[in-house]
Amino acid sequence: MKSARLLWTLPLLTVPEISQAQQMANTVYNIQASGSYWAITTGPDGAVWFPEPSDKIGRITTAGVITSYSILNAGDGGPSGIAAGPDGALWVHLAAQ
């Protein structure tokens, strides 16, 4: 088990479209669906962050803008967990490969 500290100097990569997945009494929007998603958290910037299946970290703003960041190197392991630390950084759990 490893962890990685996510820095804030990351480039904008993709901006996928939000689509509606299903509707009951409340409206549910499928923001992204390309594998298994294990965790989600609020970042110190107020955006929502989540590990992506393809060794990336995703970020969505309250306005619905989605960005994917490639932060990992080959062999680092897949990101599976994420949490905001008291140091103002995001910490990412990397599952063993």
Partner: peptide
């Protein structure tokens, strides 16, 4: 803060069985 809920799933009902990151706008 506005009341919307975000979450993640590991799988889903579609043909690929893919999970998703979702947002729920409460009525």
């Amino acid at each position: 803060k506005g009341g919307a809920i975000y979450g993640a799933t590991t799988s889903g009902p579609g043909p690929t069985g893919s999970g998703m990151v979702y947002k729920i706008a409460l009525q």
